[in-house]
Computed example of a mutant assay.
Amino acid sequence: MKYLTGIFLLLLMQTATASQCRVDGGGWIDVTQDSVSIQVPVKTNPGTGLILLDGYQLECRYTPDGFPALFRDYWHTWDNALIPGPKFTSYRMGLRIKNTDYPVPVGRRIHIATMPNNGRGVNLNTYMYILIQGSPGNPIDIVQGDLLGTMVLKQTNNTGNPLEPIVRVYLYADNSFVVEPSTCTINNDQAIDVNFNQVDRTRIGESVISTPITANIRLNYSCPDPGITLPITITLKGPPAGFDSGVLNMSNPDLGTGLLRAGVQVRPEGAFQTNIYNSSGGDDVTFALTRRVGSTPATGDFSGSATLVMGVP
Results as ranks from 00 to 15, higher is better:
residue 222 S to G: 08
residue 222 S to M: 06
residue 222 S to T: 03
residue 224 P to W: 05
residue 224 P to M: 07
residue 224 P to F: 05
residue 225 D to A: 13
residue 226 P to K: 07
residue 227 G to A: 05
residue 227 G to Y: 09
residue 228 I to S: 01
residue 228 I to V: 10
residue 229 T to K: 06
residue 230 L to D: 02
residue 232 I to V: 14
residue 234 I to F: 06
residue 235 T to Q: 09
residue 235 T to N: 07
residue 236 L to E: 04
residue 236 L to R: 07
residue 237 K to V: 14
residue 237 K to S: 11
residue 237 K to E: 12
residue 237 K to F: 12
residue 239 P to V: 13
residue 239 P to T: 14
residue 239 P to D: 14
residue 240 P to L: 00
residue 240 P to Q: 03
residue 240 P to K: 01
residue 241 A to I: 11
residue 241 A to G: 10
residue 241 A to S: 14
residue 241 A to C: 11
residue 243 F to Y: 12
residue 245 S to N: 14
residue 245 S to M: 13
residue 247 V to L: 04
residue 247 V to R: 00
residue 248 L to E: 01
residue 250 M to K: 03
residue 250 M to P: 00
residue 251 S to M: 05
residue 252 N to H: 02
residue 252 N to Y: 00
residue 252 N to V: 04
residue 252 N to T: 04
residue 253 P to S: 04
residue 254 D to K: 05
residue 254 D to I: 02
residue 255 L to S: 00
residue 256 G to T: 02
residue 258 G to I: 06
residue 260 L to V: 10
residue 261 R to L: 07
residue 261 R to M: 11
residue 262 A to R: 15
residue 262 A to M: 14
residue 262 A to Y: 13
residue 263 G to S: 13
residue 263 G to M: 14
residue 264 V to L: 15
residue 264 V to T: 15
residue 265 Q to M: 15
residue 267 R to W: 13
residue 267 R to E: 09
residue 268 P to V: 03
residue 268 P to N: 04
residue 268 P to Y: 01
residue 269 E to V: 10
residue 269 E to K: 12
residue 269 E to M: 15
residue 270 G to W: 08
residue 271 A to F: 15
residue 271 A to K: 14
residue 272 F to N: 06
residue 272 F to Y: 15
residue 272 F to L: 10
residue 272 F to C: 08
residue 274 T to W: 10
residue 275 N to E: 11
residue 275 N to W: 14
residue 277 Y to P: 00
residue 277 Y to C: 01
residue 278 N to K: 12
residue 278 N to S: 10
residue 278 N to D: 11
